[in-house]
């Protein structure tokens, strides 16, 4: 089988799995009405937006041969920083002034914090040659602690209508988070397929040593990838905070696992060098529809977890069987 056919089949399998789920849910008399409603459809899309933002970044990191366990904590800290700055501003004791932030300023600051923490991940990984697993495990704890320090352990709520708009607003009939996630998908599909950076990700994920000997600057590329991953986690944090109108110290716990699951279900190889952003979109949709269907069917949350776990195993097992052919 040629690689192109194989790729197509792998993609086709994910699409088929998604369609199968949609058809199955539509055929269940007790839920089909609700499931097929426009409102539910938008709901699913809105719910997956946060995971999609995280998972795009995770896809880049995994393609490059790494992993980022810190995205859930980075998401929380970015959201909390934006919320805190918007609500309370910041005191600069050295100058004796209190800075107040506009909504836009707070958003930029939240995004910048995400990018900075991601950059730090990349710096630690390249400077001290730490395995990404360990470096980002450290950051998982650091960023969570920073969030709790910053929020003093309490949610920051009531952030105003402008801020809430990016989480709950609509434009042309679609929720804002869906627009934002879609825009990011478009941008990163372009980056992975059509730019140097994208090609370099596949190259260093496929064979780091050969990439280095071909003159690629591994350090710069890796730092960029982790910074992008952090920035995308930051955006996810802003979306989540805006949707809930609240930044909580425990936001995003365990999100890194959902994100890795989406990437893997989407056919990206955990060892790097193989996969795609579009695959990850499918992975997020599959998880989203599955969650939605299970909730509508009133399956207990305990069972939901178990079923999700088996779906992940099945997806990866299928991928392996394909690779063996």
């Amino acid at each position: 089988m040629s690689p192109q056919t194989k790729d197509f089949l792998a993609r086709f399998q994910s699409v088929a799995a998604l369609l199968l789920m949609v058809v199955a849910l539509s055929l269940m008399p007790q839920i089909s009405g609700t499931f097929l409603s426009q409102e539910n459809g938008l709901n699913v899309l809105r719910q997956i937006s946060v995971n999609l933002c995280l998972s795009i970044g995770m896809t880049l990191v995994i393609l490059s041969g790494g992993i980022d366990l810190s995205v859930g904590s980075v998401l929380a800290f970015s959201g909390a920083v934006a919320a805190g700055l918007l609500k309370n501003g910041i005191m600069l004791p050295a100058f004796g002034v209190a800075l107040q932030f506009t909504t836009f300023g707070a958003l930029v600051a939240g995004l910048a914090v995400g990018a900075a923490l991601g950059w730090f991940n990349g710096w630690v990984i390249t400077r001290f040659k730490l395995p990404p697993f360990v470096a980002t495990l450290g950051m998982l704890s650091i960023a969570r602690g920073l969030t709790q320090l910053w929020t003093k352990g309490f949610p920051i709520t009531d952030l105003g209508p402008d801020f809430a708009f990016i989480g709950t607003g609509h434009w042309l009939g679609l929720p804002m988070p869906v627009w934002i996630a879609s825009l990011l998908v478009a941008v990163f599909v372009l980056i992975t397929r059509k730019t140097r950076l994208g090609r370099y990700l596949y190259a260093i994920g496929g064979n780091e040593r050969a990439a280095q000997l071909s003159g690629l600057n591994l350090r710069a590329i890796k730092v960029t990838v982790y910074a992008l991953g952090g920035a995308l986690a930051g955006i996810a944090g802003l979306l989540l905070t805006a949707r809930l109108d609240s930044a909580t110290p425990n936001a995003g716990i365990g999100y890194e696992l959902d994100s890795i699951a989406a990437v893997v279900i989407g056919g990206t190889s955990l060892s790097g060098g193989r996969g795609s952003v579009l695959g990850t979109v499918l992975g997020c949709l599959i998880i989203g529809v599955l969650n939605n269907g299970l909730v509508l069917m009133e399956v207990s949350p305990f069972w939901q977890q178990i079923i999700k776990g088996f779906v992940i195993l099945a997806a990866v097992a299928l991928d392996k069987m394909n690779a063996k052919e």
Binding site: P3, L190, R193, K194, T195, R196, G198, R199, Y202, A203, G205, G206, N207, A210, A211, S214, G215, L216, G273, R274
Partner: peptide
């Protein structure tokens, strides 16, 4: 070599600038 990439991608790997137009591959 990067075995998981194509002949084309490996060929251009060390001089990828030559295959760019308007900043895109």
């Amino acid at each position: 070599l990067v075995l998981s990439l194509s002949v084309a991608a490996n060929t251009s790997l060390a001089c990828i600038g030559k295959t760019e137009r308007l900043g895109l591959l």
